Amino acid sequence: MTTNIFQDLYAKYKDKLSLPKPWDTVVISILNVLLTLPTFIIAHHNFLELDTRIPIDRILLFIIIFIVFHYILIAIKKYIIIGVFIYLVMLFYGTLVGGYSFYRVYDDYRSMMYTMGDNPYPQDIIIDKLLPFPNKSKVLKAIDFTNPKVRNFALSATTKHFQEAKQIKGYSEYRSIIQSFAVFKEIKSRWNYVNDPIGSNYIATASETLQHFSGDCDDHAILMAAGVKAVGGIPRLIHTDAHIYPEIYIGTKRDLENITFLIRKVLFVEESKGKQIHYHIDERGHIWLNLDYTGTYPGGKFMSETILGQLTLND
């Protein structure tokens, strides 16, 4: 009986809720572009590209995706206004309660379009925006930077390393970053790589890892992120196809120049001698310095450049 009532209501109002001409064409065109662009970028990153003077394969790929979405939207156009209305309500609710908001939609699309430009520091930001960070809730819980053991370890590292940096002009501006480098140096000097048990992806908390300074790449990344966070730095974790490593927020290109000077001339003189400083620039122009255990100094060489996701701890 209840089912029949809903069916009657749907039959009565479905034509009224469908878009009148020419608005149906306008809405379909807008939705088509919004769906085609991110789908094309994902396909562009994951399909082999022909080495031709004119990127015919990419042009055809875009056209095919556009046509497919066009026919799908045409087929369901009677239901589009309902879907758009529900979507807008969800975004409005997210804006009010701090969830997925209108700004987040804009920000995600801006990030996607950034990857289509001539970016000299290629990152797969589009994948980052659409794929979840692996074990995100467990990883966030494991970064227990407020734990007294983690906080005390980070403080001891800052008193053990780089006290001479206090004499450098501009030290106060980069205090948290330099102290984060002290945490990096202490962890690096004591780290012992140990694989997880076979068939298991064991995620240790930072306070647990402190007992033996041992673990795999995600354990190191979690400990490093917790230590950096404990002294006021802003860390993020980068997920690649086979690796997780930490980075620290540096700021602008001017900040990078100053930090590079400190690394090369004061803090890691021997370790960085004649070597390159490696970093990423995100879609907002923010610079992030590599803190992976594979390097002997902040900004060491990346193990992998293919970024599948990132998790930033800036709260």
Rank of each mutant, 00 (worst) to 15 (best):
L131T: 14
T2Y: 00
R110K: 15
D219W: 03
L256P: 14
A11N: 13
L291R: 09
I65W: 04
F268A: 09
T240P: 14
L9E: 11
T2A: 01
G274N: 04
L48T: 08
I63L: 11
V231S: 04
I203Y: 02
Y100G: 02
V97G: 01
H243S: 01
I59L: 10
L223I: 07
A182I: 04
Q163M: 10
R151N: 11
T294D: 07
Q123F: 11
V194C: 09
T2W: 01
N152T: 11
V105M: 14
M116I: 14
V27K: 00
P132D: 11
P298H: 12
S18F: 04
Y10K: 04
D8K: 02
F47P: 02
G170E: 07
I28Y: 00
D8N: 06
P298I: 02
H45T: 01
V26A: 11
I74P: 00
V150Q: 09
D216F: 13
I281G: 06
G99A: 03
R284Q: 08
Y93T: 14
K229A: 13
Q179D: 15
I56N: 05
F181G: 08
F145Y: 15
E271H: 07
Q163Y: 09
R254V: 11
E270V: 13
L37S: 07
L291C: 02
P246C: 08
A226K: 05
R104P: 06
L91Q: 10
F40T: 00
N32L: 02
L130V: 10
D144Q: 06
F261V: 02
I222R: 03
K78V: 04
Y71F: 15
N195K: 14
E305P: 03
I248P: 10
E173S: 13
Y293S: 10
N258G: 01
V97I: 14
I80H: 00
I126L: 15
T3F: 05
L9V: 03
Q211Y: 13
G299L: 05
Q163C: 02
E283Y: 15
S101K: 06
E173C: 00
I259Y: 06
I244R: 00
I277E: 07
E164H: 14
I65N: 03
A142V: 05
Y171H: 13
L223H: 03
G233R: 09
G233I: 01
T146Y: 13
L289Q: 13
I59P: 04
P132K: 09
I198M: 13
D241S: 12
L131R: 12
G170A: 03
I198L: 15
K138F: 12
M303T: 13
F268P: 02
L48C: 00
H70V: 04
E247K: 06
S172P: 01
D51A: 01
L31I: 10
S304A: 09
R175D: 09
R264P: 06
G99K: 10
F133R: 05
S189E: 14
V228G: 05
K166V: 02
T52I: 02
R236V: 05
A225C: 07
Y293H: 09
M303I: 07
A206T: 11
A226G: 07
L289H: 12
S111A: 15
I56Y: 15
G170H: 07
Y279G: 05
V105I: 12
L50I: 01
G299E: 08
D241V: 15
N119E: 13
Y249F: 14
Y10I: 10
S214C: 10
E270Q: 15
D218Q: 08
D255G: 06
D282I: 00
Y202A: 07
